[in-house]
Design a protein around this nucleic acid. Structure first.
Lengths: 231, 231
DNA sequence: AGAAGTGATGGCACTCAGTACCCTCGATTA
DNA sequence: TAATCGAGGGTACTGAGTGCCATCACTTCT
């Protein structure tokens, strides 16, 4: 029922456009009553984002159950990856939706309010877990916004390319940039290389590398290669 | 005419609520025809943000006319201050509007799409002026989002306090945090702090790199390159 | 089995935002 | 004086969203 409504809606939206399609058109094609549409979707816009409500719940639970001694920024990055995975799970659908939201202002506005709720959840998590820090609330808002922006950047680039290519890699790079900018131990110039290699357990083996500044790069690479390649 | 519509609308919105007020109520109180309302405001929501369209134009022109050899990040921060000044110019109005947008989902969504257009303009400016840098587009999106988040944080804090206190000071602090996070090390604008908090990198010459086993080599190399070759 | 409850669905009527079209009126201009 | 034009007003329409009630299938209790 839900599925048939979504299917009928997208068929019509892609064919004749979002605004040119009425609820009556959708329910007629789906073969259900008009009233039933609003039982499954609170608004016409919501049928375009059928999985976001569940994804938001999933993300919220993930953050709630995250270990209290972990790095909140990393946890928030991982939460963003959760959302990205939802998009990546159905590239065709995501690309079609992207084309729709790009040209229909009403859908863009609706997507913004959906994304805003993700950002709120991230900021709240950072605020709670990053307590004790000066400017904690400010930092929480800014980092959450940056993570969302990085997510959106990677996602949009991938969607614009028609869903071809490696979203995850783009996401790694984008989140890496954000994490580096906001990590305590180092500025944007590097260090903090622990940025989001996929969500491994915290007790995973790590390599610690010490090098003097000015060390020839080839030498470092040789050492790192030996240490990392062993796995 | 425009003013009388705004005045009538806010009077009713604050009295009986946004959704409980119809367009007919507003035009009846203002003593004008219903059709005239939509001549001045494209939607019921727009009457709550009467000055944003002009402010967006103003901000766009400011960025367009900004000197080409200035720091784009600083220019974007100044553009955000422009918007903040618009709010600060009428504290009572801004506080009333804040209370409305906080509790009416439709208004929140509308505000989000307004803010999104500001963010777009900032990102575009950063993309154009910050050319030549690797990851320029990503950086533009993230910095724009961070600046907007800092602006919103300072603004919301001030609005929650009822419009009392110094917004400009809060804005300085918030933007300062963002600028510090994204400044290149040894950047031209003072305080070469390369990270969020005060922890300056001690002057010793050792770089510590942490990486999980299985980390792609290219990423390690990238980070090491930045850390070792940076100075 | 029959009655009664329950949840999913369909139908109908209504409110209200937003739009298209046309009217009026006053001011300007040929 | 006649033609034009622009601001405002009125009317009727479309379509989203809601409330209310009827229907139907399925279950549960007696």
């Amino acid at each position: 029922m839900r599925e048939s409504l979504i299917k009928a809606a997208f068929q019509l939206f892609l064919d004749r456009g979002f605004e040119q399609t009425t609820i009556d058109d959708i329910v007629a094609l789906a073969g259900v009553g008009r009233r039933s549409f609003f039982r499954y979707f609170p608004s016409k816009e919501d049928v375009v984002f059928p999985d976001h409500e569940g994804c938001l719940v999933e993300m919220t639970e993930y953050l709630r159950d995250a270990p209290a001694d972990g790095d909140p920024v990393q946890q928030v990055c991982e939460a963003a990856r959760l959302v990205l995975r939802m998009y990546a799970a159905d590239p065709l659908f995501s690309v079609q939706r992207y084309r729709l939201t790009r040209e229909v202002p009403g859908l863009r506005a609706h997507e913004l309010s959906v994304v805003w709720r993700y950002e709120l959840a991230l900021a709240e998590h950072l605020r709670e877990r990053g307590a004790g820090r000066a400017d904690g609330a400010l930092r929480a808002d800014v980092v959450a916004a940056a993570v969302v922006a990085a997510h959106n950047h990677a996602l949009r680039t991938w969607l614009r390319a028609g869903g071809e290519g490696d979203v995850q890699a783009a996401m790694d790079q984008a989140l890496g940039y954000v994490v580096r900018a906001f990590s305590d131990s180092a500025g944007p110039h590097g260090g903090g290389g622990t940025d989001g290699v996929d969500g491994e357990r915290p007790d995973e083996e790590v390599v610690v590398l010490l090098a003097r500044k000015g060390t020839p790069l080839w030498r470092v690479v040789r050492d790192v290669e030996g240490a990392l390649g062993g796995s």
